[in-house]
C-alpha cells in the first residue's frame, strides 16, 4: 500500500510541474507588455525598462520559468494587480468556502445518485429508470448559473424559504476555525444552531452545482449495475437465497463501485468550474467569487492563481480516488 501511495505522490509532483508550465505559458500569452502594465500608463520608457529589470522580465524565458516554479514551490503566487496583496494569502482566505461547497455537493449527489442508479438497474424500464433517463439528459442541459438564478427567484424571492446567499448571516459568528469548513467546525464545537443555519445557506448553491451531475451519475451507476447483475456470482447469491437487497448493495454494488468512483473524481472538475459561475450569485465567499472579482478588474495573476489552486484541488481529489481504489481493490496495487 505505502509504495503505491509513494508512486502516486511522485507522479503528482510531475503533474504539478507540468501544470505550472501551462500557466506560465498562459502568462506569456498576454498581448500587453507586462512591464509596461506594472509601470503604469504614464511611465517613461526608462521607467518601463527599470520595472522590466526589477521583475526579471529581461532574463531568458527558461530562467523566468525557473524563478516562477521556485516561487510556486514556496507558495508564492505573485501579487494581485488589484489589491497589491500576495495572491496566496487572499486565496487562502477563500479556499475553505469552495472546498466545503464542492465536498458537500459531491456527498449530496453521490448519496442520491448511487441508490437511484441501483433502483433503476434493479427495475429496468420502471418509472425510476425512465425518470433518471430524463433527468440525465435534462440536467446536463441546464446552465448552472441560470439554475442558480432561478432557485434564488423561487426559494428566496417568491417563497422566502431560504437565504439569498452568503455562508452565514452577518449576526451569526462563524464557528471557531479548525478546518475552515463551517459544517464541520460547528459540529466540532457542538453548535447545532449554527450548523443548521450554515446548512440552510448551502442548499441553493449545492443544488445549482450538483443537479447537473446527478442524472449522469445515476445513469453511470445503472449501467455498471446492469453489467454486474448479469454476472454468475449474482445468480449464485440469489440461488443461495440471499435477500435481494443484500445481492444489490453488498454483492453487485461493491463490484460496480470502482468506475463510479472514477467518474465522481472526474466530475469534480465540473463542480469546480461551476463554483466560478455560481458562487458570485450566492455571494459565497470562495475561490469562484474571488475569480469573478479578479476578472472584473482584469487581475490576470489572481485569476491564474485561482486556476492553479482549483486544479490542484482537482488533482488531489483524483489522487484520493486512486488511493481509495487501491484500498478497495487489490488488483490495482499490483499493476
Amino acid at each position: 500500500m505505502l509504495p503505491f501511495v509513494a508512486r502516486r505522490l511522485a507522479a503528482l509532483v510531475v503533474v504539478l510541474l507540468g501544470m505550472s508550465l501551462v500557466t506560465f505559458v498562459i502568462t506569456n500569452l498576454l498581448p500587453a507588455d507586462p512591464a509596461r502594465v506594472s509601470a503604469g500608463p504614464h511611465a517613461s520608457n526608462a521607467d518601463v525598462e527599470r520595472v522590466r529589470r526589477e521583475l526579471g522580465l529581461d532574463r531568458p524565458l527558461y530562467i523566468q520559468y525557473a524563478v516562477y516554479v521556485r516561487n510556486l514551490a514556496t507558495g508564492n503566487l505573485g501579487t494581485s494587480v488589484r489589491s497589491r496583496q500576495p495572491i496566496a494569502a487572499e486565496i487562502r482566505r477563500h479556499i475553505a468556502a469552495t472546498v466545503e461547497l464542492t465536498l458537500v455537493a459531491i456527498v449530496v449527489y453521490v448519496a442520491i445518485a448511487v441508490p437511484l442508479g441501483v433502483i433503476a438497474a434493479a427495475h429496468r424500464a420502471g418509472w425510476v429508470d425512465s425518470l433518471t433517463r430524463l433527468g440525465a439528459v435534462g440536467g446536463s442541459a441546464v446552465a448552472p448559473f441560470w439554475l442558480a438564478l432561478l432557485l434564488q427567484l423561487v426559494f428566496y424571492r417568491m417563497l422566502a424559504w431560504l437565504p439569498a446567499g452568503g455562508r452565514l448571516p452577518l449576526d451569526v459568528p462563524p464557528p471557531p476555525a479548525v478546518t475552515g469548513l463551517f459544517l464541520v467546525d460547528s459540529l466540532l464545537a457542538g453548535d447545532l444552531h449554527t450548523l443548521g443555519i450554515a446548512a440552510r445557506h448551502m442548499v441553493m448553491p449545492v443544488t445549482a452545482l450538483a443537479l447537473g451531475r446527478l442524472g449522469l451519475t445515476t445513469r453511470m451507476t445503472r449501467a455498471q449495475m446492469v453489467l454486474e447483475l448479469a454476472q454468475d456470482y449474482v445468480r449464485t447469491a440469489r440461488a443461495k437465497g440471499q435477500a435481494e437487497r443484500v445481492v444489490l448493495y453488498r454483492h453487485a454494488l461493491q463490484n460496480a463501485l470502482n468506475p463510479i468512483v472514477t467518474m465522481v473524481g472526474i466530475q469534480t472538475a465540473y463542480l469546480l468550474s461551476g463554483t466560478v459561475l455560481v458562487e458570485g450569485i450566492f455571494r459565497w465567499p470562495g475561490l469562484g467569487q474571488y475569480a469573478l472579482d479578479a476578472i472584473i478588474e482584469m487581475d490576470v495573476p489572481a485569476v491564474l492563481g485561482v486556476a492553479l489552486t482549483s486544479s490542484l484541488f482537482f488533482v488531489l481529489v483524483n489522487l484520493a480516488v486512486d488511493v481509495f481504489y487501491a484500498t478497495m481493490d487489490p488488483r490495482v496495487r499490483v499493476s
Partner: peptide, 12 residues
C-alpha cells in the same frame, strides 16, 4: 486535461 476545462479556459 489535468485542469478543469472551464477553469483553464477562464485563465486563457
Amino acid at each position: 486535461m489535468a485542469f478543469p476545462l472551464l477553469i483553464l479556459a477562464m485563465a486563457i
